[in-house]
Amino acid sequence: MNRRTVRRIKNSAFLTLSLIATLAGLASLAALLWTLISHGIAGLSWTLFTQMTPPPGSAGGLLNALYGSAVMTLLGILIGSPIGVLAGTYLSEYGHDSKLSTAVRFINDVLLSAPSIIIGLFIYEIVVVRMGHFSAIAGALSLAILAIPITLRTTEDMLKLVPSGMKDSSAALGAYPWRTTLSVLYPAARSGIVTGLLLAVARISGETAPLLFTALNNQFWSSDLNAPMANLPVVIFQFAQSPYKDWQQLAWAGALIITVTILILSISARVFLALLQARGGGGAGR
């Protein structure tokens, strides 16, 4: 075998391996979705949305858990995203490359990939221990902390994409930066910021670890923010590990609901972003 053949064989071998790797990645996504659908679909029924989580050995639904998840996710976004958007605005419009901005960017990136269970411990220490009991508000706060880094990052990136000509025109009309930001930059970057919000909702609605010891769980209906509240991820966690068939079935149904919701959110976030880029975000430059 001459050198050229060896090189050609080596080339095709590695390219085939990378094709196999891609197929393996896609296959694991397909396997995961297939399992969820095949196990979860049997549990889908209207009672899921009309009944509470049952005691072991009897039928029931997930109403209180769905409600709790929705409430805490919404509260988490309502608390977290304004902070993220404002901080992102600071980095892009005021701080630029100052020492503070560099530090905030760095810490934000660390928070973005920090283990969520640590955020749970943090909220446990500063909220649950102080209040003396688990509560929905503690759960919402830990979700809010997880939402901040995502919204901050996307807001900064999206504001930077706004053509500087628009900013300059506004300044030339005598507008202060706050007016420019509110009336020119935010509207121009709206789809991008909404993308960030959707991604943040997708991220926090499936979070389990930080809720385990902040919101805990609740077998019954509760809309009291000052009391433990049921939520879908923790219910799935407990029910899936139980020996009861009814509970396991509910866990699979819950898992299917949560995954489909999150995938829809993530896909629509991407669609939003694609729309933004199609409208000319790309050609504008810096």
């Binding site: 694991s28 996504l29 995961l32 399992t35 997708a202 991220r203 670890a209 966690f237 899936a240 898992a255």
Partner: peptide, 13 residues
């Protein structure tokens, strides 16, 4: 999208 699937789903799977 595989990255968006929550941790707990990988757990029961």
């Amino acid at each position: 999208l595989l990255a968006a699937v929550p941790s707990i789903i990988f757990g029961i799977w």
